[in-house]
């Protein structure tokens, strides 16, 4: 079943949860705290430990967002889960590249490619 909050759209696919962002400039300082908290709660409260973040709607992000993604990554790893990112537009991917976070995160071109790489899929 799909679930929405004000900020996140959740779509389960097997044991993976695909998370899309509702706002185009999600990851700005004004709402980054709430988004970061909601993402962490997916892991700690809902125990969704296989997460695919779909960045299709995201047109802008800053370093505050990168910090939240890193915290989420740590939480997921603590739970032996998997966190992957997909559909990042080129100008946003550039931010990951400059900060070398493309080396830390697993990033895929689209949802289908990313879904195939989760453990136990296919």
């Amino acid at each position: 079943m799909e679930t929405r909050s004000e900020r996140l759209f959740l779509e389960p696919r097997g044991d993976v949860t695909i998370v899309s962002f509702m706002d185009k400039k999600i990851l700005d300082e004004a709402n980054i705290q709430e988004i970061g908290d909601e993402l962490v709660q997916l892991v700690t409260k809902d125990h969704r430990i296989k997460l695919l973040l779909n960045f299709e709607n995201v047109e802008y992000l800053s370093s505050a967002a990168l910090g939240k993604l890193i915290s989420l990554h740590k939480r997921v790893r603590e739970q032996n889960g998997e966190l992957k990112l997909c559909s990042i537009r080129p100008e946003i991917y550039e931010v990951f590249k400059i900060t070398k976070l493309n080396l830390l995160f697993e990033i895929y071109d689209d949802e289908e490619l990313a879904l195939k790489t989760f453990k136990g899929s296919g």
């Binding site: 370093s63 990168l66 400059i98 900060t99």
Partner: peptide, 18 residues
């Protein structure tokens, strides 16, 4: 340098580089 492997997972410190 936030891209130094020792700091790659630090939650902050990337603003200046950007």
């Amino acid at each position: 340098d936030p891209t130094d492997p020792r700091f790659l997972e630090a939650p902050s410190g990337r603003g200046l580089m950007l």
